[in-house]
Write a protein that binds this DNA or RNA. Structure first.
Lengths: 210, 210
DNA sequence: TGTTGTGAAGTATTTCACAGCC
DNA sequence: GGCTGTGAAATACTTCACAACA
């Protein structure tokens, strides 16, 4: 049904969904104009983004909030729950596991792995930390589909390979390297230092313009 | 000197710099081809990205590693140190403040603010947590230029406004809203749930292709 | 010879503008 | 009358291909 959807569109879809949370009247409607006002786009962009997936609006009226929300959730694949494991029980990963929106958006924390003997056996974010030796069994037994990879740079590629091999379907990677995985397994990279550098760049360049 | 540089280019520059860390021979050289192999691009893209800022290579030879590194650091604005405050002493912000690469890349943690009376006065990441009432004075007295905004959604806009008003030059925003700030103050958004949704989307859509 | 720097060509994404429908 | 859905136009970004040159 769908052709190739740009990454930028996906980010915006996620944003539209979040924007809809402002509207609580059950049968209310939004226009592309209103949706664009929140978010950082134009009405035309909103309509184009949505049009890749169907015709959800009514001409002259706009989009029904509840309907659009359901469509967006279905498009983004969060009209279901996802079973997620955290690999690397450091601060960032645990922060995500304890973040209320994480659960609220459809992601269930089902296991935590860390090789540190100080951490193995302790309880974090409500789960016992396990040694990674049991990782493959857990993926199978718990039906883990997503992995949050928050391990040191040196361990990331190995754990990513093991995850893919075990049948994990997607990886959220916090390590500052490009993981080498088969193209069928999507990887999203989060690189906080890179974001800071983009900031330094923007500030620095602002002085260089003529 | 420079025209408008796409965001994608900036991210890649940051990546090239990181890739150079693999090369330790002082006077060694890299070709655009080698740089492209790490990272996820083509040699032509590498050359084009760099060409926006000058001619750093030697035809027939490639780029001198140490020179290129210095140029990239200068372009990204990290050939200096930045004074950074954390607003919101939650797990994510503290994780970043304690992450070794944060300091190593030129960012100095100089203050932490949080309104929670349980946290005020305690020491986190080596700094005493202060109440946000003293924020403006601290920006002036400590020369704070960057703010890492890791507060709940409801408080983000207010603190962003105060930061801009106080003279902060850039904001790394973890709250899942678009901050309303003057266009001269760059904001980088980090939205972890959005990244997860991009992952769910990619996995879900993989089944829909014909 | 080997590899850069760069216009020109090719794609991808965004914006425009308006017909079509509520 | 108002607002969507969508081709066509405009703009942005990437890739090509080759002259320049160490």
């Amino acid at each position: 049904m769908t052709r190739k959807i740009p990454d930028s569109t996906v980010r915006r879809l996620s944003h539209y969904l979040r924007s809809l949370e402002g509207f609580q009247e059950p049968g209310g409607t939004v226009s592309s104009e209103e949706l664009a006002a929140r978010g950082q786009t134009t009405a035309a962009q909103v309509r184009k983004d949505l049009s890749h997936f169907g015709s959800f609006g009514k001409r002259g009226l706009g989009y029904r909030v509840d309907e659009l929300r359901a469509h967006l959730r279905s498009i983004l694949g969060i009209d279901r729950r996802w079973r997620v494991a955290l690999v690397g029980a450091g601060r960032i990963g645990l922060a995500l596991f304890e973040y209320p929106a994480f659960r609220a958006r459809g992601y269930d924390c089902v296991a935590i792995f860390d090789p540190d003997p100080e951490k193995v056996g302790t309880v974090r974010a409500g789960l016992v930390v396990h040694d990674p030796s049991g990782f493959e069994d857990a993926v199978r037994d718990l039906g883990i589909e997503l992995v949050i990879l928050a391990v040191p740079e040196g361990a990331a590629q190995e754990m990513a390979g093991r995850a893919v091999e075990a049948g994990v379907k997607g990886i959220l990677n916090f390590a500052p390297i490009r993981l080498n995985v088969p193209p069928l397994v999507p990887v999203e990279d989060v690189n906080l230092v890179m974001e800071l550098e983009a900031l330094s760049f923007a500030i620095t360049q602002a002085g260089h313009e003529e």
